[in-house]
Amino acid sequence: MSLLSIRNLKVTLRTPQGPVYPVQGADIEVAEGKTRCLVGESGCGKSLSMLAVMGLLPAGASIEAEQMHFAGQDLRTLTAKTYRRLRGPGMGLIFQDAMAAFNPVLRIGDQLAEAYRTHRGGSRRVAWQKAVHWLDRVGILQPEDKARYFPHEFSGGMLQRAMIAMTLITQPRLVIADEPTTALDVSVQAQILALLRDLQRSEGVGLILITHDLGVVAEMADDVSVLYAGKTIEEAPAKVFFDRLSHPYSQGLKACTPNWRAGPRPVEPIPGLPPPLNQRHQGCAFRYRCAKAMQICDQLPQMQPVGERHRVACWLTQRDQEITNAQTGEQP
């Protein structure tokens, strides 16, 4: 049963220089209690498609989608008011920059309690107790004392823990974490990832983890989606993702990611840059950088299933599949 199901999401932003199309066909599926990692480079629409899911897009942005379901609700029909009720108990967001996400002049405990009272109600005393409880759950020592601290008195790792506590205090069913460990040291990153994984298991929440770090993907993901220039180009279970990627961009991404365990392996950079997003893709967005581009790549490829939970948008895979089908005599 999928908790979140997004098909062909498109986001258009109006700017003084004309419309920009940062998301042009994102598919995102999250199963209840599972982790889906969204991978891609900056500007590929990862964060913006998540803001669209949360209903937090800036004014002037418009959304189109074939399907946008969350826990049986159609997100496209929600009003600002009903969306507000959904955030918190429904879905929560963890930001990259925890320092910027907290109010610098309020105590950490008060900010957690406020989140609890806004979405779950109850007295100030109960909310404060909840805040202390959750600070304890995320591994902050002496939570009663630390709840009285101000954000600047916390270290980066502690703040990220507090941020996770603030998101989980309302007990959401879906948590979206946008690069939660990018600003942290590796050993702190490892702690935060372990914490997220434990809490996600024990609370049974669905988790969307936005990252550009394949190392983080390897630690966390059940399923992976690769976005390129605003479009989902491949989605696969984590094992398939690392073992046999299909899309040339996914392969390139893996080939240019250094891995110390693989020994001294030369990185193979992907030449060029992602295309500008001020027009809609006419064909495959990756064709300008793709070594295997063909004539047909001038047409937009659709996502095609190639295995269990594994779908790819690439003409190459489609051609290979047709050849296999022809050989085995099966009808596509």
Binding site: Q189, D213, L214, G215, V217, A218
Partner: peptide, 9 residues
């Protein structure tokens, strides 16, 4: 040990 490795585990 804490360095995340980009390979399936």
């Amino acid at each position: 040990e804490t360095c995340p490795v980009p390979a399936y585990q």
